[in-house]
């Protein structure tokens, strides 16, 4: 065991379902090694004992949806040496970014008995729209192997081995025949960042893009193929790009093109 001071870890939550931060607790086989290597200083889901900052590594889950949260994230940034946003909410605004395409006040007036109690922003936005983020870990939910890799890379002062390339590469490496080519199933894999291990194609389903767009997505070409060869209509195209990463710039643009007709 190497001798070094344990770095302090903090985990914060914004608008999200908690699934991503729970991935850390879900690292059953590795959790003791994690706890041995890092001091869990501020992680309310794991422990009520909170040690004050600053923190060496901060994981932030969730998107910014309220004026209060838009303030809070700045305080968190100030107390964090390295800030990593985790999950689709934190990296692209999440499923709740569907509000970005509509009038949020209309939702509030329909859903809540006292709309005047609700203070919310028009848009759900990723953490990187508000503060500097050192690394974005994609996924809905994130992959626990990738989360461990990020923590591991941080501890060992190296770059995380996280691919920004397509899900197709994972399919090909595991030997899964392409579901779009062989089954005519629409699949977002070619424009989606790897990381899940190509789970859906391995179970004969098209990719839903839980991990958001690749570094240079050509969604226009993919949509054209879906429409012209797979018989996908405009409504389905819009819905496909409006999943967990609806707010990601490339997907937002592509869905709006098809919404306009």
């Amino acid at each position: 065991m190497s001798l070094r001071k344990k770095p302090k870890l903090a985990v914060y939550k914004f608008a999200s379902c908690d699934g991503c931060q729970l991935s850390l607790l879900d690292c059953e086989d590795e959790i003791l090694a994690v706890a041995g290597a890092i001091e869990i200083a501020n992680f309310p889901e794991a422990s009520r004992a909170v040690t004050s900052g600053p923190y060496d590594l901060t994981l932030v889950e969730g998107s910014i949806t309220t004026p209060h949260d838009a303030e809070r994230i700045h305080a968190i940034r100030r107390s964090s040496k390295v800030l990593v946003s985790i999950g689709a909410c934190a990296t692209s605004g999440g499923i709740q970014a569907l509000r970005n395409f509509k009038d949020v006040n209309e939702f509030v007036s329909v859903v809540y008995a006292r709309p005047d109690y609700i203070e919310t922003l028009n848009k759900s936005t990723p953490i990187s729209d508000h503060v500097w983020v050192d690394f974005e870990l994609r996924g809905c939910p994130i992959s626990k192997a990738q989360l461990l890799e990020v923590v591991n890379a941080f501890l060992n002062n190296r770059k995380p081995n996280i691919s920004k390339e397509s899900v197709c590469m994972e399919c090909k490496m595991r030997g899964t025949p392409c579901v779009m080519v062989a089954n005519k199933d629409p699949c977002l894999g070619p424009v989606t960042q790897a990381g899940c291990g190509a789970i859906c194609p391995a179970y004969n389903r098209g990719c839903y893009s839980c991990f958001g767009p690749v570094a240079s997505p050509n969604a226009g070409s993919l949509s054209h193929w879906w429409e012209s060869k797979l018989g996908v209509d405009k409504d389905k195209l819009v819905r496909s790009y409006r999943g967990f990463n609806a707010g990601a710039e490339a997907f937002r643009q592509e869905s709006e093109i098809h919404e306009r007709g």
């Binding site: 197709c168 070619p190 993919l222």
Partner: peptide
Amino acid sequence: ADRCLSCANCTLV
């Protein structure tokens, strides 16, 4: 390039 997805499938097969 307008059509290509840069997805790497061609090279891996």
